[in-house]
Structure formats: structure tokens, C-alpha cells
Amino acid sequence: MKTKRCEHCGDHLGARHAHNARFCSGRCRMAAHRSVRRQADPVPSAMTRRPQWVRHTSRKVPLSVAGPKVRPASSTDPETWSSYSKVCRSAAGAGLGFVLSWADRLVCIDLDHALLDGELRPWARRIVEGLPETYIEVSLSGTGLHIWGFGSVGRGRRIRRGDSSVEVYDRGRYITVTRQPFEDAPSRLADLTQVIDDLL
């Protein structure tokens, strides 16, 4: 009979374990589940390793969990920002947000009302098809897209497109993060300089 091994550490599962046991201990079971969660997290490491995270309310008001009490956060005050792991552990508010700071060249292109019944509208499809491979996620509303990458904008810009708009920011703003990738968007960031130049 083949000896079963723990799926996390590889140690033999002794006779005291049930025949359908997968792990040798509670510690290995929890470590394995944490590992799966980390692997499944689509947010690029270029974002998660930066301490520029906040929570937000259902009305998109940014919240700070940096101190002992939850309080309003500011997109221009680093003292109100936290690490990714800390905001993920917090239950405050309704979700996560990332603060854009000019120092790291991270940029977000917000395509408002880009999706109609789950399908890209033609103007948004043209933008998305011209992108290098970069992280894109569906916005909180379910009708917009947030395109993340590297670039420089300076003063944020908003371009109207009928009943829709394209916004581009690289500083002084926080953007909600849903962790819901659009289609097969990769968990990495690309240089969006040319795309931004074309848009603006």
C-alpha cells in the first residue's frame, strides 16, 4: 500500500490520520491554504509590495487602518496609508484602495462605462486591444475598467467620450481595487507611456 504524504510539507501521514487526510497538522493545513490564496491573488507585486494601501467605504470614502482606530485616509498623507497585508486583514469598510504617488511611476487609466452587459464597448475595445500585457481589473460598478501600469501623467486628466470618460492619474488619488481581473489580464505591470501619450 502506498504511503500518503502531507500535501504541504511532504511528511508521511501516520496511521493516526484518517484515510482521506491531506495534511499532517493544522499548521500545514493553514499554511497550504494561505499559499493558495497568495497564488490566486491577481494583484501585481509591484503594487502589493508598496505601503500605499487604504480601505474604503461603500461610498468610496478612503479609510486608514494605519493606527489603532479606523479614521479617514488622505491620498496625499502617507501616514494614513498601510501595507497590502494589513488592509487585507482589516474588515473596515467595504474594500481596498491603492494610493497613487508620483515617486513610483505607477499609473491608472480608468475607463468609465467601458462595459455594457459584460461586453467591451467599441471605443473601449480599441484602447484595450492597443495595450501591452498589463494588469486590468473590473471596477466596483462592474461597468468600468482600471488599467494599471507604469507611466507619468503629472496633473490628472479626464477625457469625455459621450456618456463615458477616460481618466488618467499617477498621483494624489486613490483608486479602488477589486481584485477581479478583466478577461485574462496578467498579474504584472507594463509601461503605458505610449498608450497615455496616444490618449492625451
Rank of each mutant, 00 (worst) to 15 (best):
M1V: 01
K4S: 13
C9E: 13
H12Q: 01
H12S: 10
R16I: 10
R16M: 04
N20G: 03
N20W: 03
F23A: 06
R37I: 02
R38Q: 04
Q39K: 10
A40D: 11
P42D: 00
V43D: 01
A46C: 02
M47Q: 09
R50W: 12
R50G: 04
P51H: 00
W53K: 12
V61W: 09
S64K: 02
G67V: 10
G67S: 07
A73Q: 05
S75N: 09
T76Y: 12
D77A: 13
D77K: 12
E79K: 15
W81R: 08
W81Q: 11
S82R: 03
S83K: 08
Y84V: 01
S85G: 02
K86T: 04
R89D: 14
S90R: 07
S90G: 05
G95R: 04
L96T: 11
G97C: 02
F98E: 03
F98W: 12
V99K: 13
S101W: 11
C108T: 02
I109R: 04
L111M: 09
L111Y: 05
D112I: 05
H113M: 15
G118V: 15
L120D: 00
I127L: 12
I127Q: 14
L131S: 14
P132N: 08
P132F: 05
P132K: 07
E133R: 15
Y135E: 00
I136E: 04
V138C: 08
S139H: 01
S139K: 06
T143F: 06
T143M: 07
G144Q: 07
G144C: 10
L145I: 11
F150N: 13
F150K: 14
F150R: 14
F150E: 14
R155E: 13
D163M: 14
D163N: 13
S164T: 09
R173I: 03
I175P: 15
T176Y: 15
T178I: 09
F182P: 10
A185T: 10
S187V: 10
S187T: 02
S187F: 03
A190W: 07
D191C: 09
Q194D: 14
I196S: 05
D197A: 12
D198G: 05
L199W: 00
L200C: 00
